[in-house]
Design a protein around this nucleic acid. Structure first.
Lengths: 218, 218
DNA sequence: ACATATTTTTAGATTTGTCTAAATATTTAT
DNA sequence: ATAAATATTTAGACAAATCTAAAAATATGT
């Protein structure tokens, strides 16, 4: 597989939402940052190679084989992310771009040994699960704050909405990625929450809560 | 720089023997495993980019800028080799192919942190020096056995001649990469050597000695 | 259901890095 | 010094991945 092919496979996988939904040409084009006409060409090729199922005007899908490739890429990507954060002191938000390159390195031994070196981690720094060598998946450990039981503790590992106003709000309230958060209680009336960050207790609306991802630790 | 361009730069660098000798089109073609006509095209491009100095029918050279790029690639390659051997239990002879891929990863922070993680190593597993971030070089620590003072101890890190007969000889005499070798003495008459490997003392001809690289440790 | 808007595909061009075959320059041998 | 051998470059073609512009199919609104 070439670099480009692998990028398309990953994009089809991620847009397919895990259940291998059929993906539209336009959505793919946006994902891989190219034009729809280029996507058409590529998905035809992937189809001929047995990696994807493409039906003109209907969309694309990964074949069994394509899914195996996608999972292996996701596995590599996430293992490298763990490596960067745990061993090389990268922060949370710096890892993606580099992992995007590292995931294309071809060496089975490299990934096996990296996995071992990292102590066989089950999730990446964003709380997303790492597929096993054979392609099995644990359930995601990251959840939106409003889906977490009262009393839980978690680390803030991501945001759903990454628009400037929301990020500005987080900044103003000193909520940052990597912070440990305790969910104190929830207001019946409006679904707002009280949460504890370090020694501070903060009140946040349900809308805020439903855009903050936590990796649960207790 | 693209992958290909970087491969050519490295090839020009290595064929230039450190002193930036002018390199012939044919030699380059052999090194990067392509045809001379392709080399001509590429070196023209590198020349236009200010990376190399190319004179038709005469050969190519790296510019100052090209040398900086080459040294950075060599640095990356060798740091990754150290990583593979020290952290991921790769053996000596498995690292090259993988490092060849890893050296193209673009991230300054990645390399700085890797260097730190590895404890700022000065040589790679073959005894070749690792250029500093600014491009400075220590002298090579690997030497041919026949250029080493009597009484020295070193680790076998490579062979000059890698032909089957020679490798077969080494195998038969249980001389392997990674072995620690003591140079006991040298015979005046024919330049042959007595060396100690583990508890065994072996007699080797001068020709053998002049094809074994050691990384000196005492 | 029809016209309009959107999405997708096709056709043809472009760029990068490569190739083959032929032409040209350089080197070597006598 | 000249012929033969070798090395290098040029010219033209090709495959991969992309693009633009135009055509075709599908979806949408009233």
């Amino acid at each position: 597989m070439t670099l480009s092919e692998e990028d398309y496979i990953k994009a089809i996988y991620h847009l397919g939402k895990g259940d291998n939904t059929i993906v539209s040409t336009n959505a793919l084009a946006e994902m891989v940052d190219t034009k729809p006409s280029s996507v058409t060409d590529m998905v035809k090729k992937l189809s001929e190679k047995g990696v994807a199922n493409y039906k003109p005007y209907k969309g694309v899908n990964l074949s069994e084989y394509g899914q195996r490739i996608a999972l292996s890429l996701v596995r590599k990507h996430r293992l490298w992310e763990v490596f960067l954060v745990e061993k090389l002191n990268f922060s949370w938000d710096e890892v993606h771009e580099v992992a995007e390159q590292l995931e294309h390195i071809k060496s089975e031994k490299l990934i096996d040994q990296l996995d071992k070196h990292l102590g066989y981690p089950e999730v990446d720094p964003h709380g997303d699960p790492i597929p096993s060598k054979s392609g099995e998946f644990k359930k995601a450990i990251k959840k939106l704050l409003n889906n977490i039981p009262i009393g839980s503790v978690g680390v803030c590992v991501g945001v759903k909405d990454s628009s400037p106003p929301f990020l500005k709000f987080l900044d103003k309230n000193k909520i940052a990625l990597g912070d440990t958060i305790l969910v104190i209680d929830r207001e019946e009336f409006d679904g707002s929450y009280n949460i504890k960050i370090g020694e501070r207790i903060i009140h946040i609306s349900n809308q805020i809560a439903s855009n903050l991802y936590l990796k649960i630790t207790e």
